[in-house]
Amino acid sequence: MKLVSIDHSGFPAAAILRHGEDGTDELLPLHISPADSDDLVPISMRDLLDDWEHWKDELQRRVATSTPDAWVPASSRALVAAVPEPRTFVCVGLNYHDHAEETGAELPVAPIVFAKHPASVVGPDADIPLPPESDEVDYEVELAVVIGKRVHRATREDALDAVAGYTIVNDVSARDWQRRTSQWMTSKSFPGFGPVGPALVTADEFDLASGRRVQLRLNGETMQDSTTDQLIFGVADLIVHLSSVWPLEPGDLIATGTPGGVGFTREPAVFLAPGDVVEAEIEGIGTLRNTVVAAPATQQQQFETTRSA
């Protein structure tokens, strides 16, 4: 099943996405009815994930009992980030064999873990603003794990039980900032540097055993093209490792690393520029599309421009 978050008058409401019988995509918005009211109240992806043991079965029931008029055209709603408010946004560096090879780095003996600020999260079709502080902004398509069950010190046997589903992350990175220190969070956390979506595919419908194709296109040109078979540390490995340090909670997002083909390793290097269209695609999930724009003027710049006019 595919789940999305849609803009409901500014609220990130959860909905089920499916391909309709007429060949177009359609949505089933999800609501609850409070005990003291007959009104229907939209619920968020966070609401679903906080009670995932209930909702993973309830979602199936909602689809089975839905009437045709309950579904609306997907084109009638704007998508926001599939997981718009992750509790934590954890990333893993150097986790594809082909990416390690292109950088000339030795394979890590343990996952390289860093954080991305949740404030960087944006959704499908949102802009990626280029910050004036960086001249070397790069793309990174990544498979992301969405946690739906609290887990601490997981074993390999129960690690995957904590997974609600999977989505796509573009781990946009300011490479010049990344080289400044050994800590990468600042280089990864500018506004718009965390596109997430377009959908969350539930774990029961996303089998990683056979490998999934992972691609990124820049202005239509394929820049990254690999499969999840290239992962150095798999999903279960990452959950075991991370949960050995802190409890993973529902709503946590784990970006599992990027394959080869990133911009800074190319000759000459390729960095994002205003007007670029970036499409991150993973087989079985969809395509996360964003446009690169120049950073908006600061409030001070706007004031000075207005005063001089």
Rank of each mutant, 00 (worst) to 15 (best):
A154W: 02
T155W: 04
T155P: 02
T155K: 10
E157N: 07
D158M: 09
A159F: 00
V163S: 03
A164S: 13
A164N: 12
A164L: 09
Y166M: 09
T167Y: 08
T167K: 09
I168H: 07
D171G: 03
A174H: 07
A174Q: 10
R175G: 07
D176I: 06
D176N: 12
D176S: 10
D176A: 08
W177M: 15
Q178Y: 12
R179L: 13
R179K: 14
R180C: 07
T181C: 08
T181A: 15
Q183Y: 10
Q183V: 13
W184G: 00
M185E: 15
M185T: 15
S187L: 01
K188D: 04
K188T: 07
K188G: 07
S189W: 05
P191G: 07
P191Y: 03
G192Y: 07
G194D: 10
G194M: 08
G194P: 12
P195I: 06
P195W: 08
G197I: 06
G197E: 05
P198D: 06
A199C: 14
V201L: 03
V201E: 06
A203N: 11
D204Y: 06
F206E: 05
D207S: 15
L208W: 06
A209W: 00
A209D: 14
S210R: 13
S210D: 12
S210C: 04
G211Y: 02
G211M: 03
R212I: 09
R213C: 00
Q215Y: 03
Q215H: 02
Q215L: 09
Q215M: 13
L216P: 05
R217K: 14
N219C: 12
N219V: 09
G220M: 10
G220H: 12
G220I: 11
E221D: 15
T222K: 10
M223I: 03
Q224M: 06
Q224K: 11
Q224V: 12
D225Y: 08
D225M: 07
T228G: 02
D229P: 01
Q230K: 13
L231F: 12
G234T: 10
V235K: 00
V235A: 14
A236C: 11
D237G: 08
D237S: 07
D237T: 04
I239G: 03
I239L: 09
V240K: 11
H241Q: 09
L242A: 05
S243M: 12
S243R: 08
S244C: 05
S244F: 06
S244K: 01
V245Q: 13
W246N: 13
L248F: 01
E249P: 02
P250C: 13
P250T: 11
G251E: 06
G251H: 12
D252K: 05
L253W: 00
L253D: 04
L253E: 00
I254R: 01
I254F: 01
A255R: 03
T256I: 01
T256A: 00
